[in-house]
Design a protein around this nucleic acid. Structure first.
Lengths: 348, 348
DNA sequence: CAGGACTGTGATATCGTTCTCAGAAATCAC
DNA sequence: GTGATTTCTGAGAACGATATCACAGTCCTG
C-alpha cells in the first residue's frame, strides 16, 4: 500500500554491503583516522554505489554540531540584506555549513519565534541583523546557554556576541560634509526614529558634521510605517526650507524620492539629496542618487567567518567579543548637485 | 570548565517534574487524545515553567515529518524571487512549517548540492524555482522516493510535480499587442535564450502577437552572462531599426535601460519599451517602465498551500499533478509612449 | 623480548523523541 | 454481575548515527 517504503539507505546497509561494522563506515564518512587505506576505498565505493547519505537528524541528535547556521534578517526585499544573506550562504557552504534563512519582516513576534526555534533545531550558531530590542531576552538566553552569535549591521546592548558593523558615523559625516562643502547650510536629516543603534550612529555623524561647521542640525524622524514623504514635502514648503536632504536609509530615500517626484519638486535644483545605503538601481533613477555605499557582501562574509571560527575553536566564548567595522564609500551621482565623478557603471 | 553544560531540558525532565511517564508528556505536546484534562494542565504548566522545547532532531529521527520545507530559488537579489520567498515563509509559518531557503545563484552544481542535502535533512517537501534542466535527475529521484515537490514560475519536463505558473504567454501577447496598437511595426524581443520554459512561453506570446498582426518577429537572444546592452544599441543603429523593445525579463530590462541611458538614446521617443516582470523602482526610473506585473507573492502562497495540502493528505502522489496558472497585469508607464493610466502610487 | 604506544576494527550504549503494546481503571451493554 | 469496550497511563523498543570501550595486531624502544 503505502509507497512510503523505507527506501532510505542507512549506515547499517553500507556496513553490511562491505561486511564491516557501522563504526568503520562512520569513520570513513567523517574522515577519521584508524581506517586502512584499502578499507576506505571499499567503503567509499559502497557509499557511492548505494547512494548513501548520512541522516542529519541522527547526527545532530547524537550531539555533534548540526552544521547549520541560523541567519535572521529583517527583510529580503531590501537589497542590502539580500546581498548580505547571499554572501553568508556562500561562505557557509564553502565551509561545509548550511544556512537556515529567516526573514522576520520587522515583526518582533516573528523574530522571537524564529529565535526560539533555533535552539530546538540545534542550530550551531546564529547570524542576526537584530530588528528590535525586544528580542534581546531571547538572544541573551541563547547566548548564555553557549550559542555562538554574531550580530551584523546593528547591535543590541548587553549581549556579549560578535559584531560586524559598518562605519555609520564616518559615512554619514562624510556625506553630510559633502553637502556642506557644496554650500548647503540647511540640511534636513530624514529617517526612522532611533530604531537601532546604527541609525543612531548615522545621526551622530550627521550631527557632528553640522556642529563642526557651526550649523544647526534639523531632523525629521518618524516611526516606521508613518509616511515620511508628505512630511518632507511639508518641510520644504516652510519658510527657510532646507536646501538639502540627508536620508538615513534606503527605504526613506525611496519614499522621499517618490514624494518629490509626485510633487514635481526638482532634484537637485530645488533640493539636493544624499542617502545612506546605495542600491543597484540608484544610478538609473530619474535623478541618480548620491549615496553612501555599504559593503553588504563583505559584511556577510566577515560575519560568517567570525562565527565559523568561533564554532571551530570549541565553544569559544572569548572569541565572540570580536568586533569588525567596515568602511563605507560615498558614491557621487547627480542628486547632490555635483557631477558624478565616475562613469556610469554598466549593469550588464 | 566547559560551559557546555547539558542545560537543555528534555522530555524526561518534564515527565519527572510531573511525576508521570514521558509518553504522557509526549501526548500533551502533540495534542493527542487519551490524556485527562487535569493532566494536560499539569504538564503544560511544567513545560512552561521549565521552558521546555522539544528537540527537533529527535522528532525528525523518529520518523515524524521534519516540519521543514525546502525552498530553492535562483537568486535573492531578484525582487520577484524575494517576494515569492517571503510569501512562502509566511504561509508555511502559519501552517506550522519552517522554511529552509536556498539561493543557488543560477549555479547548476550548487542547485544539485542543495537538492541532495534535502533528503539527508529529512525535508518534508520541496518548493523550487528550477534553474536548469540539469537538476532534473536529482529532482526526479527525490520525486520517485516520494518527496512532494512543487515547481514555481518554471517547470521541468518529465517531472510529475505540482506546478504554479503565471500566464506568460498571455502576458507577453498583451504587452506586444499594446506596442502594436500604438503603431509599432518593428519590435525587438530581447532576452536570455530559452533558459527555461517560462521564457519560451513569453517568446511564444510575443510571436503570436506579431504573427497575428502580420509582422515579422525579430529576436535578440543571448546567453546569460553575455552583455545584452551593447547588442541592443547595435541593433538600434542598424538600418530600419526597431522602434520598440520587448524585454523578456527583469534583468535584461535593467541592462537595456542602462545601455540606452549610457548611449543617451531617449525613451520612448527614439525607442519604446515594455518589459516582462515589474519591480518596485520601475516607476521611479528616469523613464518609468511599462511592465507586465507578475503576482509574485500570490505565486508563493498558492505553491506553499499546494505543497502543504499534499503533505497533509499523506504521500498524496495523485494530488501533485495539480497545476495553477495565475494571471498577469500590464502596468502602463511612460516607456511605451502612452501616458500612464494610473496615478503614481506612493511608495510610503 | 617485555612493556608501551599506536593502528585497525567492532559491540554496545546513547542522544531525545515517539510508536507499540500492555495493563489498570472506568464505563457501558445486556 | 460479567464481559466488552473505552480511557488513561507507562515500560520498552525503535529511529540512525557516533562515543566509548575493548581487543587484537603491529611497531617501537631500550
Amino acid at each position: 500500500m503505502s509507497m512510503r517504503s523505507r527506501s532510505v539507505v542507512t549506515i547499517a546497509d553500507v556496513a553490511r554491503a562491505c561486511g564491516v561494522g557501522t563504526m568503520t563506515v562512520s569513520r570513513v564518512i567523517n574522515g577519521k583516522k584508524h581506517v586502512s587505506e584499502a578499507m576506505v576505498r571499499r567503503v567509499e565505493e559502497a557509499i557511492a554505489r548505494l547512494n548513501y547519505q548520512p541522516n542529519e537528524a541522527a547526527r545532530t541528535l547524537k550531539g555533534r554540531t548540526s552544521r547549520t547556521l541560523g541567519l535572521i534578517v529583517p527583510s529580503l526585499s531590501d537589497p542590502f540584506f539580500s546581498q548580505c544573506a547571499h554572501a553568508v550562504q556562500q561562505v557557509a557552504a564553502e565551509q561545509g555549513y548550511m544556512t537556515m534563512l529567516f526573514a522576520c519582516e520587522a515583526s518582533h513576534s516573528v523574530e522571537a519565534e524564529e529565535l526560539s526555534q533555533m535552539r530546538s533545531r540545534n542550530i550551531a550558531g546564529i547570524l542576526i541583523v537584530p530588528s528590535s530590542e525586544n528580542s534581546m531576552e531571547q538572544l541573551k538566553e541563547l547566548r548564555r546557554s553557549g550559542m555562538p552569535v554574531v550580530m551584523m549591521d546593528r547591535t543590541i546592548a548587553g549581549i556579549d556576541a560578535g559584531e560586524v558593523m559598518v562605519e555609520n558615523l564616518e559615512g554619514s559625516f562624510r556625506a553630510t560634509n559633502h553637502l556642506i562643502d557644496h554650500g548647503h547650510r540647511r540640511i534636513l536629516c530624514v529617517g526612522y526614529d532611533r530604531e537601532y543603534n546604527s541609525i543612531g550612529q548615522r545621526m551622530d555623524g550627521y550631527r557632528k558634521a553640522m556642529q563642526t561647521a557651526g550649523l544647526q542640525p534639523q531632523y525629521l524622524l518618524v516611526k516606521r510605517g508613518v509616511p515620511v514623504g508628505p512630511r518632507v514635502v511639508a518641510a520644504l514648503r516652510a519658510v527657510k526650507p532646507p536646501t538639502a536632504i540627508f536620508s538615513l536609509n534606503n527605504v526613506t530615500s525611496v519614499a522621499v524620492l517618490s514624494a518629490l517626484k509626485r510633487e514635481k519638486i526638482r532634484i537637485p535644483e530645488q533640493v539636493a539629496m544624499v542617502g545612506f545605503d546605495d542600491f543597484e538601481l540608484a544610478s538609473l533613477l530619474a535623478v541618480p542618487l548620491t549615496a553612501v555605499r555599504q559593503p553588504a557582501a563583505e559584511l556577510g562574509r566577515q560575519a560568517t567567518r567570525m562565527l565559523i571560527d568561533s564554532l571551530r575553536s570549541g565553544s569559544g566564548n572569548q572569541q565572540m567579543s570580536a568586533r569588525i567595522v567596515l568602511p563605507t564609500e560615498l558614491i557621487l551621482r547627480q542628486s547632490c548637485g555635483c557631477e558624478p565623478l565616475a562613469q556610469i557603471t554598466p549593469l550588464d
